[in-house]
Computed example of a mutant assay.
Amino acid sequence: MTGFARVEGQTDGFAWVWELRSVNGKALDLRFRLPPGFDALEGPCKALLGDRLKRGSINASLAITETARVAQLKINDAVLGQVVDLLKSLEGVIDAAPPRLDGLLGIRGVMELADDQPGPEVREVRLAALTESFGRAAGALVAARDAEGERIGRVLSARLDEIAGYVSTAEQAAATQPDAIRARFQQQIADLLDGAPPVPEERLAQELALILARADVREELDRLAAHILGARELLAEGLGVGRRFDFLCQEFNREANTVCSKSADLGLTRTGLDLKAAIEQLREQVQNIE
């Protein structure tokens, strides 16, 4: 299921933005993009999402801005010492004026930005705030997916109504199919036996019974009706039903294929094809649900 959530927060000059995006997926795939130094957030945040979601590809990103942090310069004593030692080694070799302070400080590597990292207490406070903020983002994402789920639920219900209509039409066509098969069979036998020795009536009756048994789709239509009832029960259950619904769609399709293969009537064949199309549309929507 698709969804998007964005949550912003800040504390003491430390600001952040969580963005969560969800797209359809058969399993739960969680991917995080975190700034350097914040990898410790991934484990707890994945566990939180895993408790709330079962399917979907989720991408979570965190952007950090430290608005109150002021860059500080410091002298790299090791580099400055190397420069001073080098100047001493050149005394008497090169006739030059002693270096000035601004010249020394201008040498690359002598001056650098101080690594002003927050202390452990400040870091713990920030990580706690980020985790709490992620929880709110996850809640917003779940709410967005739930809203989409309600819309998809209405679409699925309409598809089931459509499938039920085709099943009813197929039942009516199936009820007239034996008479049509019997009449066609008798005409074909009459044409084949015109002028030929007669075939025993018992033998003809056996062949006709076999043809009728092979063309009987009532069992498949009964199973389709049972599947429709099962699908409506899943919709009413409404939580974590995506995989079971996906399997049920496979059973829908299996029965529809059998109806088409057994059909000896053009009308029933057309209804079977319409039924297969409606089932495929149902299956496509089922891929989107939790």
Rank of each mutant, 00 (worst) to 15 (best):
Q285M: 04
R184T: 15
W18I: 05
Q10L: 03
V217W: 02
N253W: 06
Q287H: 10
A114P: 01
K262N: 01
T131P: 03
E220Q: 10
Q186W: 04
L275M: 15
G238A: 14
E207C: 10
A140Q: 14
R182K: 15
G272R: 13
Q177S: 15
L127E: 12
A47L: 10
L192C: 11
R254K: 12
I211W: 12
F247T: 13
R243F: 10
D116S: 08
G272N: 13
A180W: 05
R218C: 00
Q72E: 05
I189L: 15
S157N: 08
Q177V: 15
A175N: 04
I107V: 14
R100I: 04
F134P: 00
V17G: 01
V125Y: 02
A63D: 09
Q177C: 14
A140P: 00
M1F: 08
E66I: 05
R154N: 09
F185K: 01
E255F: 04
R203W: 02
I189P: 06
D29S: 11
C45Q: 14
D161T: 12
F245T: 01
L239H: 06
R203C: 00
A264W: 13
Q82P: 01
K46C: 08
D179L: 14
G149I: 06
A277N: 10
L127G: 07
Q177F: 09
A226E: 04
E124L: 13
E219M: 13
L234S: 07
Q206Y: 07
V7H: 02
I58R: 02
L192P: 08
K262E: 02
A277Y: 05
Q206H: 09
A236Q: 14
D12Q: 14
V93Y: 00
A144C: 04
L62V: 09
L266I: 15
T176F: 12
I163A: 09
N59Y: 02
R31Y: 00
A236D: 13
A78S: 09
D179I: 09
L104S: 09
R203G: 00
A129I: 04
E124K: 15
Q281D: 14
S133G: 11
P120S: 07
P197C: 09
G272D: 07
I75N: 01
T67S: 05
L41M: 05
K88H: 06
L235H: 08
A215Y: 13
Q82D: 14
T269M: 08
L221S: 02
F247Q: 12
H227T: 05
R283Y: 03
L156P: 05
E171L: 12
L208R: 08
S57L: 10
K54D: 01
G267T: 15
A158G: 13
R21E: 01
V259G: 07
D246Q: 13
R283C: 01
L235Y: 03
K46R: 15
L90N: 00
R223N: 01
L113M: 07
A138R: 07
A128D: 07
G195E: 06
W18R: 02
P200D: 15
E124N: 06
D246N: 15
R159P: 01
V241W: 02
E148P: 09
A97H: 05
